[in-house]
Nucleic acid binder design. Structure first.
Lengths: 166, 166
DNA sequence: TTATAATTTAATCCG
DNA sequence: CGGATTAAATTATT
């Protein structure tokens, strides 16, 4: 199953004040061990198997552009990829990956929606079920009641005769 | 399963939906944010905003050890983190992140299981529902069908008399 | 401020 | 390409 990210665990009910206070994350690789790149496979790793990858952070403009392109075509051909790559100063591979991830995200959203629908359906089924059971019980009660059975045990003509014997 | 809302009560459904995304405009203009050196803000920086990060690949031993620790305590205190970090030759930060992600994975599995359960429940509800409807219809049919009424319109004694008039 | 839960993201691997 | 993973980053909450 795909990752249903269905955040069921929301548990956050009231939305509180959000004070934002951006902490300027002065994150930087203070320690740049760059240069080590690839020590592919097997390693007496200082700190594990480092692959030294570059993590991209897209700018607002790049994201916007990508989104826009995605809205037009969720899948690109190589020419389009190259074109976009040039415009955005990214590698075609990165464009490619971005679109893959973007498609995946779309699909994920879909599953979330499906889950919600299933939940609603389950609820209405439960309701209807309860209704049916109640109704059924009432009917059964009527059917098995002595009044009913004795009533239909004698036909109307007999009944009349009984009341008015000629 | 958190918010199965019963419509009856105006239950406060904890809305799990992400109420995030406050996109305070203010926030981002500060591209002049951090990184003094990431001077390019509308950058055509080569390939976007690269952050040069090292991607860790854990060895089998490291993973095994982490798993084992996780089975004992899903949450570590700083001391334990440091200890593990030393043993595995990782930074404490990495241990920390690993545990975070590990916990997230566990939760994800849970939601998957919940989804499956919900599906099953929905199915059995559907089944029972169908059964109830059928039963109900039969009962109603007996009660109101013309066959029944005509049949009982004449009682057995009358019927006998009709066949064998004495 | 620290900690951590939750979410997002770019990237990788596999089929 | 889709799907699953992953480590890391980001956001929000306490």
């Amino acid at each position: 199953m795909t990752g249903l990210s269905l955040a069921l665990a929301g548990t956050v009910v009231p939305n509180k004040k959000k004070l934002k206070l951006m902490k300027p994350t002065i994150n930087n690789n203070n320690e740049d061990k760059k240069k080590l790149f690839s020590s592919h496979h097997h390693n007496n790793n200082k700190g594990g198997d480092m692959v030294l990858r570059k993590k991209l952070r897209l700018t607002k403009e790049q994201s916007a552009m990508l989104e826009h392109s995605f809205n037009q075509h969720t899948i690109l051909n190589s020419a389009q990829k190259k074109s976009l790559a040039e415009q955005l100063n990214l590698k075609t591979r990165q464009i490619e990956v971005w679109f893959q991830n973007r498609r995946a995200r779309t699909k994920l959203k879909q599953t979330e929606v499906e889950y919600e629908l299933l939940k609603k359906r389950c609820q209405s089924l439960t309701d209807e079920n309860r209704r049916l059971k109640k109704e059924l019980q009432e009917l059964t009660a009527i059917k098995t009641s002595p009044t009913t059975t004795t009533t239909v045990a004698m036909c109307s003509s007999c009944h009349n005769k009984l009341l008015h014997p000629n």
